[in-house]
Design a protein around this nucleic acid. Structure first.
Lengths: 201, 201
DNA sequence: AAAAACCTTTGATAAATATCAAAAAATCAG
DNA sequence: CTGATTTTTTGATATTTATCAAAGGTTTTT
């Protein structure tokens, strides 16, 4: 008998297979194994997936919505440093990889569904299925490219230009993300972003 | 008979082995193979290792000195976006990985020695020696972490704070790198950086 | 539907940083 | 060593952006 939840899980798993399929070809055995080690999770809007000060040992595959990375600077001002949009893997990269406490919080911006893998299970996966080293490498590479793009946007362009480039890059999302979060991602205050938006209207 | 050059090459290779040894344990066979596929190169100060507009198909291991990444913004102003310090691998990451033309130039800041690997040889390496997928993954991960750190430094801190953090992080190098290059890395003009330096003296 | 909480805009002013031009200092090449 | 080139500093001013405070909007909760 298929319960309602199990249908959701199957959908999620299919989505994960298809995502991984972008990186390597999956055999039936691979798929069996994936289905076994990932755990289905529901995540509520605003829930913290990872927290500043804690070591992050989880890797999540999220299928819908998006997450926000943020921290507080020396003055206690909240800074949004990143967004990741589904379908994607999410973790506090630096903490997950180094085993050191995270400097950032990761927050679900919508009610989301996810498949979770622990760091231990991932490492076992790497040992037993070398194919997944490649997946890990390709994903790490895409994370590196993602960061570099954000970096390039911040360097030496006036705030208005940065905002327009962001709009071009994520046309679907930028108008739905609260402005205050986008502002610090662009390295400006929300008041300045509000004025920039107005001036282009 | 050992020529002068061959001694240099042997030193470079040893340095490469030791660098790779941080990521995986190398067997004698691995070492033989590495010695065969990497090519020794001399690079002159100011030489461009990779160029804006061209696809970058080279991966270099450099053993001494450092390189600078730069490009020109919409106003024609030169922007330094990154530094990598030896010992390290160097490539225009995004172009090397995607096969698209690079948006940046990579410039040797000193006379340097390097060991070069082509993209084709690297891909063969990945196919034949899955162990190196792990090396690739770990290096990609460290690149991602490196970018993220630069990003964090730029976000929402006054320029003086950014400069001091940079000094703390690279105490050996910052005072030897021309100020004009550091300025744009920090997202400010050289005049502003000059004044910041003066105010801390 | 009203209250509460949250998010965005507006205005006045202050602070940080950029720009432009030129002088001083350091480095390089012959 | 010395003139040429490059890099850094300085000064005056303009521009951009931040800050603070308050008012409008929106959304969520009860």
């Amino acid at each position: 008998m298929l319960t309602f939840t199990s249908v959701l899980v199957l959908n999620m798993l299919e989505s994960l297979h298809s995502y991984l399929g972008n990186f390597v070809q999956l055999t039936d055995a691979d798929i069996q194994m994936i289905n076994k080690i990932f755990v289905y999770r529901k995540i509520k809007k605003n829930e913290l997936i990872a927290e500043d000060g804690k070591v992050c040992n989880r890797l999540l595959f999220v299928n819908n919505g998006y997450v926000r990375f943020f921290h507080f600077d020396d003055n206690g001002t909240e800074i949004t440093s990143d967004f990741y949009f589904a379908p994607t893997f999410v973790t506090t990269y630096t903490s997950f990889l180094t085993g050191l406490p995270s400097h950032v919080n990761v927050q679900a911006m919508c009610n989301m569904e996810a498949l979770e893998l622990s760091k231990n299970d991932l490492n076992e996966l790497y040992e037993k299925y070398p194919k997944f080293e490649r997946v890990g490498r390709l994903i790490a590479e895409s994370v590196a490219i993602h960061s570099e793009e954000h970096l390039f946007m911040l360097l030496n362009q006036p705030a208005g230009v940065r905002y327009r480039k962001l709009l071009e890059k994520y046309p679907l999302y930028i108008n739905t993300i609260p402005l205050q979060y986008i502002a610090s991602y662009l390295g400006i205050t929300q008041e300045t972003l509000s004025r920039i938006r107005k001036s282009k209207a």
